[in-house]
């Protein structure tokens, strides 16, 4: 009897919990994908931690208990794999895009040159030191030849979601955000966006790995397979992610 109760509390024998660390640009898309996955596998539990790709990568090197790591820049998981932190090949899963977004000005009618408008006092980007979208934003501003004039207006969010918050609260008039956030339900309702041409910056090739600690985790393997399924790809596409350049082997 007691054994039965204990077994019932423990749930089905196959139930597992994994923690996924993901770049902040995935906030809404991955939440949906996790919901889809959880509906299929009611026993399994997935926790998702969002942050800047650089910060999460550092945490994994320091032994953070993440089973999968989704980065907005595939270089971070590649370097983790080179240094022996990965239990799977690095899988490209999407390509991100940059967008101008503003809840008060009509960003749909803007271009990068609009940032020179004196009415725009503050432009928010993610911290280029550790956030890929911040690095690409800097590249795009340089390629557009307006870096020197926009730089004094820049403020830096800790990750791309924090950057969106600066703009959403109106403290910065415009943000250079991930398209996936500009298309998120809460933000899309508030304002249009301008898609920044992707020839202005290095591609935002996104990649994930299963980490070393999850080497024998069946759930981590199954979720990794689900993320590259057509169903998950469709969710990604709705949030403006383009299919990855290199198809996973």
């Amino acid at each position: 009897m007691l054994t039965a109760v204990v077994l019932a509390l423990a749930g089905p024998a196959t139930a597992e919990t994994i923690t996924v660390a993901a770049a902040a640009d995935l906030k809404f898309a991955l939440d949906e994908i996790v919901t889809l996955f959880a509906a299929r596998h009611p026993g399994d539990r997935l926790e998702v931690v969002y942050g800047s790709s650089g910060k999460l990568s550092t945490q994994i090197r320091q032994g953070a208990p993440y089973d999968l790591y989704f980065s907005a820049d595939i270089d971070f998981p590649r370097r983790l794999a080179e240094d022996g932190f990965a239990a799977s090949p690095v899988v490209p899963y999407a390509r991100g895009r940059l967008a101008l977004w503003s809840p008060r000005l009509d960003a749909a009618t803007m271009t990068l040159a609009s940032l020179l408008d004196p009415a725009i006092a503050r432009v928010a980007i993610a911290n280029p030191k550790h956030a890929p979208y911040g690095q690409r934003a800097v590249e795009a501003l340089r390629a557009a030849g307006i870096w020197e004039r926009v730089e004094p207006k820049l403020v830096f969010g800790d990750n791309i979601a924090h950057t969106a918050h600066f703009v959403e609260t109106g403290n910065a008039q415009v943000g250079i955000l991930a398209l996936s956030l500009a298309l998120a339900p809460g933000l899309e309702r508030q304002g249009g966006h301008y898609l920044i041409p992707d020839q202005l910056h290095r591609p935002l090739e996104q990649g994930f790995v299963v980490t070393r600690r999850a080497a024998s985790s069946d759930l981590a393997r199954r979720f990794a397979e689900f993320v590259v399924s057509a169903e998950a790809r469709a969710v990604m596409a709705r949030y403006g992610f383009e299919p990855p350049e290199e198809e996973p082997r």
């Binding site: 008060r104 918050h165 600066f166 609260t169 109106g170 403290n171």
Partner: peptide, 12 residues
């Protein structure tokens, strides 16, 4: 503070 300092917040 961030909300309050925004243009629609009380401080803003």
């Amino acid at each position: 503070l961030l909300v309050a300092m925004g243009p629609e917040g009380p401080v803003g």
